[in-house]
Design a protein around this nucleic acid. Structure first.
Lengths: 303, 303
DNA sequence: GAAATAGTGTCTGTTAGACAGTATAAC
DNA sequence: GTTATACTGTCTAACAGACACTATTTC
């Protein structure tokens, strides 16, 4: 800190200034964190020969009170005065999944004035990736009715309009969350405006069926980020167990990217990120496959 | 919004619930925005033949009151209750540079408990890129003493320690801000911990000479992001005037990346992002060069 | 013609995409 | 042998890095 002997215009030292400082003079918004907790699990297999399919899952919580009572929201809560934003996020994560040491990344801070009808709430969103074999049941039978939903998010309309100095690109995404009991969905519109050199992207929830607040657009944003980062970082491994086959890894990439990859090319791409072990799968209805583990010395040039 | 006829556990409708809601029950932090306003300007040229050198500049404000009185801080301020976070950032930008329509991007939200000695302040940082030919003098002779600083940020120590399940990578960066009158600097430490599949990066200001709050680490973070994004997006054009030569564009890339690029390769890389005009520079002490403009239809695959 | 920058051509090695082929377990 | 998956080899086109070369203006 600076030397406290300097006086300000009112003739106060730093010590005196801080003692007199009254933060309550100004009205302040509430601050919360919203957690996007993703995992990948196996869907039951069709017959003894076939491999199980993988699906991307997201944890949601059923709201027990107003507003949006009965709808589903992202887990989260208010930040306490004695914890950092990140500590708040870790606390929420621990409360929901009972897991400590996990991949977590700050995504974006959402600050529209009317995003919460109770009061002004600014929310910092975090994405966490969980290996499903690590998962506690706790998240499934908690008092507050937390449930995993299968996520899918597809672009279903794209419209480009040329303007004088650029163009406007409008996209509509269909977000669907489902499990055995519930089917909720939303339509998110993203509008990219390019005018001269400046480009801007806005995001808006056009329609929401059962998804509380503006959480549908937060989910869409997170999935975009996830799809983007899986291409050039190692985040996918946070969704994998300690040992895995290359086909399982490929399935995780495919389910996130929502498209099929060619096996030979995929294996070349991730070759340096994995280390082979001497173990093999067994009791598959076909040729067993070698198990691999993550190579922690893989270097991501960007970090 | 959901149908307001549903009752919660206290038997209240949504309307009644919201009417009774008292946000002031909970203590709340203050929310601010910090702006990183970058531009690239010409350094005077050495002789009539040589091209001017380009330098990266950042706008800072001298603090007139406690805390950190007399030190330099990022422009910014508290978010008002009737404006969104983004609107707050745009307002600050307008106040400091008097420019409206500009590239601006949310960077990160900083939420450590003790980052401001006055009270708990959480700050959302935004990066803005400004074409210097657009710049108003206003930022230079404002009451609050705003000044442009030349920025440089170099890695000067890197230390990798292998651990049981991964490694720890510690880096020290030297951040220097200078102009004719002032020289301020800081040392920022980043620690990347890789343990099994999970990796985490922490950032810390080790030493700060004249840079207020935790702003040195926000600046280091922004420069990393800028270096990263210039490689695969078109953000650099936000720093360029309407018309520019390819050498000027290359200089901007070089000053941000802090390394030299080969001309032929650079031109191939950016070929699709620019459109040539029929104009040429004149009165250079050497062969004139063609002027180009940004191609707004260049498509960034990632967005 | 000297100084300085503008601009192009090409070699080389690496990478991404497509596809075709061989290998091996369970039943 | 059938089924289903495991795993490998190779062709091609695109791209990145390095370097050498030619062109054009002012003074």
């Amino acid at each position: 800190m600076s030397e406290s002997k300097i006086l300000n215009k009112q003739g106060l030292t730093e010590e005196q200034f801080l003692a007199a400082y009254d933060a309550s003079k100004f009205e302040r918004p509430s601050m919360s964190v919203d957690m996007l907790i993703f995992t990948v699990t196996d869907e039951k297999k069709e017959n003894y020969r076939k491999l199980p399919e993988k699906v991307l899952r997201l944890l949601m919580i059923k709201r027990a009170d107003h507003p949006y009572i009965g709808q589903w929201a992202l887990p989260g809560g208010f930040i306490q005065m004695d914890e950092s934003v990140e500590e708040g996020a870790l606390r929420e994560l621990k409360e929901e999944t009972n897991i400590d040491n996990i991949y977590m990344e700050q995504l974006y801070t959402w600050g529209d004035v009317d995003r919460d009808p109770r009061t002004r709430v600014i929310s910092v969103s975090y994405m966490a990736l969980v290996d499903s074999s690590n998962l506690d049941v706790r998240a499934n039978d908690d008092a507050d009715d937390a449930k995993w939903f299968t996520v899918s998010c597809n672009l279903y309309q794209e419209q480009k309009t040329l303007t004088e100095k650029g163009y406007i690109l409008q996209r509509l995404f269909n977000l669907r969350l489902s499990n055995e009991e519930d089917n909720i969905s939303a339509v998110i519109k993203t509008v990219k405006t390019v005018e001269g050199k400046i480009s801007r992207t806005e995001r808006e929830v056009v329609e929401s069926n059962g998804i509380a607040f503006d959480h549908a657009k937060i989910i869409e944003y997170a999935i975009e980020r996830l799809r983007n980062k899986i291409e050039y970082t190692d985040i996918a491994f946070n969704l994998m167990p300690e040992r895995f086959t290359l086909t399982e890894l490929q399935q995780v990439y495919e389910v996130i990217l929502d498209r099929e990859l060619l096996k030979a090319n995929f294996r070349r791409k991730i070759a340096d990120m994995v280390i082979e072990t001497n173990e093999y799968t067994k009791d598959a209805g076909h040729r067993p496959s070698k198990l691999f583990r993550f190579n922690p010395n893989w270097s991501d040039a960007s970090e």
